[in-house]
Every structure is written in C-alpha cells, then in structure tokens.
Amino acid sequence: MNDTAAWLGAAWDRAESVQVVDGGEDRGPIDGRAVLAEAQRPSAPQEFSAPQEFSARQEFSALRGLTTAGRFTGDICRCHGGLTIVLRDSAGGIIGSGSVHGYDTVSWERSRFRDDLVVSDPAGLQLLLAEIGVPHRLASFHGPLANLLDLRGQRPQFRPAGKRGRSYLSERRVPGVLWPALLTVTGEQAGELPADRIDDMRHLLAEVMPSPADRATALLTWLGRLPVEAEASWGEGVLVRQLLAEAPRSAPPADVPPADVPPVDVARAVLVAAVAVARGAEVVMGAVNLAVHGGEDADLVAAVAPALRALFPPGDAVQR
C-alpha cells in the first residue's frame, strides 16, 4: 500500500459525510463552492458490492468504493478537474478532497501526493454521480464512446456533397428517403439548413417511418455514427438534433387549466423510450451527443444507464 492509499483509507474511516462540489483545483476555496450532492455516513455499516445494487442508503459507501478502488499512476493529470469530492468530519471540517478529472480519474490531495487514481469502475462512478444529482455526467462518456466507435480523427471533417457523399450516408445509416436532399449539400451546410427544408425532411421521414419510436431510433443511430468533433457538433449533428425535436409539446386536457398541468414534451418522451430499449453503441452515443448539447435530464440518464453499464463494465478503464 502506497502513501496515498494509506491516507485515503484513514481519511474515509474518519469521514462522517462526503460532498460533491462544483469545480476542480482552480476554483478557489471549497467552502465557497456550490454543493451538488451530499451523503452522510449511515448509522449502521452498509455493504456495497456493485453499482447496479446501489440504493439511496448506500450513497456514502458507494462513493467510497467507487473513488478509492483502482490503480495509482504516480503522476497527475495536467487539467484542473471539473468536480471535487470533499470528506468532512463530524464537526464539518474538511479532512481532505479529491478532484475528478474527465471520465476515469480522481486526484486525492493532489498537491500533497501528486498521485492520480484511475478508478476501477469509471462508468459506475459517473452514473452514481448522476443518480445523486450531479449534472452533466453523461457528457463524460463522450470520449470513451468515440473511442469505442472509432469516431475520432476521420477525414474529411465534413461529408462532401454529390456522389462522393453517398458512401458517408451509407456508413452513417442515414435513412434512404433523405439522401436526395442531403446530397445537394455538404455535411457542414446540412447544419445550416433553413427551417422549411428541415420540416420537409421530417415529413419525408414520417411517410416511410410512421412510428415515432422507429424514427427516434434511426435518428439516434445516425447521430451516434457521426465523426467527432466537427460533423457531430456542427455539421449533420445540428440537423439530426433538430429532426429529433420534431413533436410539439402536447396540450393539457381541455377541462384542466393550462397553468395547473405542465405540458409534456412528446418528442422527448418518445426519444427517452427509444433509448431505454436500444442497446447499440451508436444509439447510446446519439443520446450522449444530445446530452452534451444541453439535452441531459434525469429521464435520459435513467434510460441510457443500463446500456452504458453493459458497454463499460467494472475494470474497463484499468485494463485499457
């Protein structure tokens, strides 16, 4: 056991609560930051064996297990991290802290030990953080999914127009009914199409795919196969995200005042249902793309979590 591991075990033994606060090493004093989630030590010992068995009463032990098991690197990440995990004693004093870096790394007492921990179950950690209320956790899967699907470094950055673009549309599994319209523009131009042309595409797609769930699955697959970062973010990715937002918000029943019943986003409900039954990595990447561009919510996290759990089992990061 190295010095970092010895300190870490003793620090968690002393801790009576754990907080997740906003910001990494460059955010300033911990006590001045927003608390995103908090868990108290349970009055009785809690066993934690696997993230899928996590319950609200296991938050403390789950956080301990997922942020202390792994491989110490003997070095540090050069970024500042985006979150900080804070251990507090019974009086509320800070025992120590660790910054969360990217998808799979926690740097405990970084300036003291300079010894990052690559955790054994990064997917479990990120999904747990999302479960207890920490926002933007699906975005942390963007890099691992891009690597899994080999979406990085592809050339050209944007799909060409005309005959040269046909192979790209085929590889991306773009519905054939949309090919004639898409081949008149490049991938970059597809992200700049006016609203009336996007509406035309919606109608064409609905004619050949009457089921909203089928359309959502097809569009998520397309979105999840786009190269990162250019095409997925600024090219066809813009178009697909607009096509996914196809349904208007439904009105409440006629006999209920609108102010008393918030409208339901029909398109969102269909999309979440499609994600929940799909297990392909492309569909999952499509959902994560939506989350990266501001579409993350608790329903989407819950829907995509089982597929992420299957794609990235415990031990995955340490083995790579």
Rank of each mutant, 00 (worst) to 15 (best):
E16V: 15
R27F: 13
M285V: 07
L145I: 08
R320D: 03
L117I: 08
E53R: 15
P194G: 01
V284G: 00
A247L: 15
R320L: 03
A307C: 04
R14A: 08
D214A: 12
I198K: 00
A307V: 09
R33S: 08
S17D: 07
L66C: 05
V35A: 14
R166M: 10
D3H: 15
Q40G: 13
L271N: 01
R114Y: 14
D75G: 10
P253M: 14
R202S: 08
A195R: 15
P42I: 07
W179K: 02
L83Y: 05
A254W: 13
L148E: 10
P135S: 07
M285N: 03
V185P: 00
G98Q: 06
M285I: 06
Q154P: 09
L128C: 02
L204E: 09
W222D: 03
G96Y: 04
A274C: 14
A276R: 08
D196Q: 14
G74I: 08
E16N: 13
L244T: 00
M209S: 10
L83C: 06
L127Q: 06
P252C: 11
D265N: 12
F60A: 00
R173Y: 14
V292Q: 03
L63W: 01
R112V: 12
V256C: 13
L63D: 02
H136F: 09
L129K: 02
A273P: 10
S233W: 14
G191Q: 02
L66Y: 02
G28H: 08
K163W: 15
G24R: 11
A195S: 12
E47G: 15
A303F: 10
P227W: 09
R88M: 07
S170V: 15
G81D: 01
V118P: 03
A44Q: 12
G65M: 02
P227K: 06
G165M: 04
H80F: 12
R320W: 04
G187R: 00
R64H: 08
A281P: 06
F312N: 00
S167V: 14
E192T: 01
P306W: 09
A276V: 04
V18W: 02
F48V: 04
I94C: 12
R268P: 01
V272N: 02
R112N: 12
Q126T: 06
R225I: 04
R215G: 09
R164M: 14
A206L: 12
A44R: 15
D75S: 15
T105I: 12
A307R: 02
T105L: 03
L204M: 10
P253V: 10
G9I: 08
P248M: 03
P210T: 05
V256L: 14
L243K: 01
P314Y: 00
A216Q: 06
E47H: 13
R155E: 13
V261E: 15
G32Q: 10
P227L: 05
E25K: 11
A11N: 14
G102C: 05
V270I: 14
R225P: 09
G124C: 05
D121I: 08
G143N: 12
L308D: 01
G98M: 11
F141N: 01
P29C: 09
L145T: 01
E109H: 11
T221E: 05
A123H: 05
V177K: 00
L148Y: 12
E16M: 15
G143Y: 14
P45G: 05
T105W: 03
Q126S: 11
R137N: 06
V261L: 13
V185D: 00
P252F: 06
P227T: 11
